[in-house]
Amino acid sequence: MSKAHIHTYDICSLGMGKPASEEMLVARFTDYLAAHPDIKFPHRHSFYHLAFFTGGKGSHTIDFERFPVERGQMYFMIPGQVHSWFFEGKVTGYVVNVSAGFFNAFLQDAAYVERFPFFSGVSAEGVVTLPEAASLAVAALFEEMLVEMDSTEAYSHDMLRLLMLEMFVKVSRVARKDDTRQEPPHNYVLLRNFRKLVEQHYMQLRLPKDYAALLYVTPNYLNAFCRHMLGKSAGEIIRDRVLLEAKRLLINVDISISTIAYQLSFADNSYFTKFFKKYEGVTPEEFRKNIS
């Protein structure tokens, strides 16, 4: 597979030699890598992707941000994120691929899973290092999931849903303990809603006032709120999302720079180039050359 293209995988295309499920896959990391050697190159998924490392070294890049691979780390990726990895020797652990709709038949609230902090779509927030006790508990849950994946017992999918939700709650509690701030719940709701709106409208809406109107707050309040929660203004968060999509598109050498500028709603190629260089320090052409 060429590194100059971002391949998008669905769950069925990453099966493990058994009848492929369109909803979920759980596997040991060593078996998964052996079955799919090409997935070390940059790619994206149409599903939620989780990786839990119990041993080994290397690096994992999510949306162009690099993280070290270490024992006890969990990586959570939402559909559409671009990632790749480089391992030094043998790596052990577990991997889960699960469709966005897997829990919909089980939960009344279709957006429930999105509320966990590691599914924000922000790379750094999707990386959680577990202490030893939590790491052992999560590994035990993965082992139970592997049993259920091969089970012919009734309600095996429901057991998988329960085990995965239990894992999400355990990991979320660890992540929340690491956050020393005690924010009121409505702050997290507003932040999640803002990020969701940015994800939906960043191609067309570039100004904080547009999102403030949709959220029924003032632009000044939205900027102050974002600085408090994330250390960035609302405008910076919108801009970062545009830059991220530009990088994702630039990996594919079959798409011209002018086409990317058009897709991202820039007036022309020159404006896009100036925007990209101002915030990334290189032109789109230079970025493409360096990443290939």
Rank of each mutant, 00 (worst) to 15 (best):
L205D: 11
P131C: 05
R115C: 08
V122H: 08
V98K: 00
N220W: 05
F106I: 09
S135K: 03
Y155F: 07
R206W: 09
L160N: 10
N97H: 09
F86E: 14
F86Q: 14
N97I: 03
Q182K: 05
V95L: 09
F102E: 12
E199H: 14
G80K: 00
K90W: 08
V189C: 06
T129W: 03
V128Y: 08
L165Y: 14
A212C: 10
Q200F: 07
H157Q: 14
S156E: 09
R192D: 05
G121M: 02
R176H: 14
R206A: 09
D109F: 00
Y216P: 06
M203Q: 14
V128K: 01
F76K: 04
A212N: 11
V82G: 08
V174S: 01
E166K: 12
G89M: 01
F118A: 06
S99Y: 02
S120Q: 09
K196Q: 08
E88K: 12
V147M: 06
R176S: 12
F116A: 04
V171P: 01
V138M: 04
P79M: 02
A124M: 03
G89D: 05
L107D: 00
D109G: 03
R195M: 14
V127Q: 06
A100N: 08
R161W: 15
F119G: 06
A175H: 07
G72M: 10
F87H: 15
E132Y: 02
K177M: 14
F194T: 06
M145N: 00
L214R: 11
F106R: 15
P184F: 05
F102Y: 14
E153W: 05
K170D: 07
G101W: 03
R181V: 10
Y155K: 15
K209H: 07
P185H: 07
A175G: 10
D109S: 08
F76Y: 13
R161P: 04
T152N: 12
Q73H: 11
V169A: 13
M167Q: 13
R115I: 11
E132M: 01
N193A: 10
V95R: 05
